[in-house]
């Protein structure tokens, strides 16, 4: 590569230093360079929300950022929320309420909602619908997702 960028970034508590092509999208960096393939790419134009990650505490779309833009910053991806044996209460609630079918959009919903629930611990249904209206799901009609968020809020309180 003629032109490279030395990227330092902390992802899910681990710090990484990687030499990358500066035009690498953050979504591709996470998926290909760090092999964190839980972050899914559904549209690459910032609409579907599947690629959402948590950047310095806020949900952002990783397909709309170049990887060098997160230099020196902290990211949490779906892999950082919980593990199969120790899931986040929201992940548990998604399972309990059948809030996922194909599961492709799910990581983006989780990363959108985890920070949101911290700020909105007692949401109404209307507020939840508003909160997830920027994430597309084709399988569930959103209803079980809404149920799961309510359930998670109860569990977390």
């Amino acid at each position: 590569m003629e032109n490279t960028f030395e990227l330092s970034v902390t992802v899910n508590g681990t710090s990484y230093q990687k030499v990358i092509d500066p035009r690498t999208l953050l979504s591709d960096f996470l998926r290909n360079d760090l092999e964190l393939t839980g972050t899914h790419v559904g549209c690459e134009h910032g609409v579907c929300g599947a690629c959402t990650i948590i950047l310095n505490g806020d949900p952002v779309r990783s397909c709309l950022l170049f990887a060098p833009q997160v230099h020196g910053q902290e990211i949490i991806t779906v892999e950082g929320l919980g593990t199969v044996d120790d899931m986040h209460p929201l992940q548990e609630a998604f399972r309990e309420a059948h809030a996922l079918q194909c599961g492709f959009c799910t990581p983006g919903f989780l990363t959108t909602l985890v920070p949101w629930l911290e700020e909105n611990p007692n949401p109404t249904e209307e507020e939840i619908r508003e909160a997830v209206s920027g994430n597309l799901c084709r399988c569930t009609g959103y209803q079980h997702i809404i149920d799961a968020v309510k359930l998670a809020a109860e569990k977390m309180n």
């Binding site: 839980g38 892999e79 899931m87 996922l100 599961g103 492709f104 989780l110």
Partner: peptide, 11 residues
Amino acid sequence: DPRLLTGGALF
């Protein structure tokens, strides 16, 4: 679900 929810399912 657990694998799908934690980013561990293969697509």
